[in-house]
Design a protein around this nucleic acid. Structure first.
Lengths: 265, 265
DNA sequence: TCAAAAGTGTTAGTCGTACACCCATGA
DNA sequence: TCATGGGTGTACGACTAACACTTTTGA
C-alpha cells in the first residue's frame, strides 16, 4: 500500500506546478480557545495542511481544494495572507532530516523525497471555520489530523510556526476591517460567546457592555426571540448574523474598531 | 547583440526558480501626483518592473535586487502585498500574443519565448521611493523605464493593472498603520507637501489644520528652524522625519488614523 | 495694499471608557 | 436566598470635525 502511494504521487507530481505550494491556517473556535487544524506525520512532528498546485489550477483553488479535503467544508471564508519565500524554509528547525526520515520510513522513492525536500515558495491562506462542522481528515503523508490550541502548539516542521504566527497577526489586524464570526460561530450564539471569540483573537479582555453596544452598532447581528436554556444563571439571548448586512460589511472593508487606538504617549 | 542577450538569458534561466516571479509597484511622489515606475516593451505595451528568483535566493531579495537594478536605490521600504496565482494571468488582456511578438521581434529563441509564456505565480511587492533620487533603468526586455501617474495608466500587459490596483489598495490601508513618507518625500518638506501626499494616497481632501495637529501628535516629525523661501506667499516651515521615532512607529504597527471611520448609518 | 497661503486657536458634538444597578436562574 | 452572570443605562473625558482669525510674503 505504501508502495502504491509512492507510485500514485509520482504520477500526480507531473501535474503539479514546480516550486509552489499552499499552506493553510484553518482556525476554529471551541471551548473558549482559538484552535488550528494540524496534521501529524509519522515522526510525531506536526504540520499545517498544505498541498501543491496543479499546472492549470488557480492558487486560490488549490487552497480551496486542500481546505475541502481536510475538513469536508465548502464555501468557506478563505483568504491569502502571505507568501513565504526563504530558500531555506524547508530546512529550518533542523527538521529536514526529520522529514527525510519520515518519508524514508514510509518507503517513498528517492524521487518523491527529493521533491519534498526541494525548494517551495509557499503561499499561506487562512480560513475561519465552524469547529463542530469539521471532519478532520489526514492526508497521504500524515497519520492524524486534529485541532490544537493556538496558544500551545506542538513542534512544527520547517517554518510552519512562523506561518501560523503571521496568520494570527493578519487575523488580528483584519478583525478591525472585516466582520468575522459568521464562519467561526454556530448559527445561533450568545453575546458572551461572540465576545469571547473577539477577546481570544485580539488577546484582550473587553468590557461586556461596551462590546454589546459596539457590535450591535455595526448592524450585522439580529437578536432572536429565543434564549439559551439550561444554564445555571440568567438565560442569555441568542443572536445570529444578518447575512446580507454581513456580506455588505465584508465588501465595504470598513473600520470596525474593537481596540483602543494607541500611540498617545 | 540581441543574439547575445538571448544566449545570456538561456544561461541564467537555469539558475532561476521555475514558475515563480516577483513584480514591483514602485511608488514615487512628484508634482502632486502619486506615480509608479513602469517599463515599456518594444511593442509599446507597458509592464511593472519584475524578475525571476534565483534558486538559492530569498523572494524578498529578488524583489530588492529588481528594485536596485531599476532605480539604483538600496535600503528602501519594500513590502510584499499579494501573490497572483491565476494560471491564465499571462494570457489576460489578449496580450500573450503581443508579448510573443515582442520577443520574436527581439530575436529571442523559442526556448526563451516559451519560458516567458509559461505560468508564473508572481508575488507583488510595493516600494516607496524618493522620486528625485531615482535613476530609472530599463531591463533587458524593455526600451524605456519611466514614471506614470497612477490615475492615468497606459495599457499594461497581462494582469499588471490588477496588481497595481491591489498595491494601491494595500498602500491605502496600511497608511493607517504605518508612518509613510520618509521614503516618498525629500529630507526636508513642508506641511502642505506631506498633506498632499496623504491626500493623494487616500484620495480625500483633508482639513489643513486638523491634519497638522494629527500628524504632529504622532511625534515622528521635527520642525526645522528654516522656512522655504522663494514662494509667492507666506514662507512655510520645513519639517523632517525623526528617524528614531519613525522606526519605532513602524515597528509598533499602531493605528495612525487619517480618515473618518465609516459604517455608522 | 492685496491676494494667496501659512500659522494658531476655539468650540460643539461624537465616541470611547468606565462605571452602577437591576434581573433571571439553578443550586 | 444567594451566587453568578446577563441586560440596560449613564456620565465623564478624549478625540474629531468644522470653522475664524491673524500673519507673512511677492506682486
Amino acid at each position: 500500500m505504501t508502495r502504491s502511494r509512492n507510485e500514485e504521487f509520482l504520477l500526480r507530481k507531473e501535474d503539479f506546478l514546480q516550486s509552489n505550494s499552499v499552506d493553510l491556517a484553518i482556525f476554529g473556535f471551541h471551548e473558549t480557545e482559538l484552535r488550528i487544524l494540524l496534521l501529524q506525520y509519522k515522526g510525531k512532528s506536526w504540520a499545517l495542511p498544505g498541498g501543491f498546485i496543479f499546472k492549470d489550477e488557480h492558487l486560490d483553488n488549490a487552497a480551496k481544494r486542500v481546505l475541502e479535503e481536510r475538513t469536508g467544508l465548502k464555501k468557506i471564508f478563505l483568504k491569502q495572507f502571505y507568501t513565504f519565500g526563504d530558500p531555506e524554509r524547508s530546512r529550518l528547525n533542523n527538521r529536514a532530516r526529520q522529514l527525510e526520515k519520515l518519508l524514508e520510513n514510509d518507503e517513498f522513492s528517492d524521487e518523491v523525497i527529493q521533491w519534498f525536500l526541494g525548494r517551495f515558495a509557499t503561499t499561506g491562506y487562512y480560513a475561519l471555520v465552524e469547529y463542530t462542522k469539521v471532519n478532520p481528515v489526514p492526508d497521504d503523508f500524515s497519520i492524524r489530523c486534529d485541532w490544537c490550541d493556538v496558544h500551545s502548539l506542538p513542534p512544527l516542521i520547517a517554518d510552519h510556526s512562523q506561518i501560523i504566527k503571521k496568520a494570527l497577526e493578519t487575523l488580528r489586524q483584519q478583525i478591525h476591517f472585516q466582520p468575522i464570526g459568521m464562519n467561526l460561530l454556530p448559527k445561533k450564539f450568545t453575546m458572551p460567546e461572540i465576545q469571547m471569540l473577539y477577546e481570544t483573537i485580539i488577546g484582550t479582555k473587553l468590557d461586556r457592555r461596551n462590546f454589546l453596544r459596539r457590535i450591535l452598532s455595526y448592524k450585522i447581528l439580529v437578536r432572536l426571540p429565543e434564549k439559551r436554556t439550561g444554564v445555571a444563571y440568567k438565560a442569555p439571548y441568542l443572536y445570529s448574523f444578518d447575512h446580507k448586512a454581513y456580506q455588505l460589511a465584508l465588501k465595504m472593508k470598513i473600520c470596525l474598531r474593537m481596540m483602543k487606538r494607541s500611540l498617545n504617549g
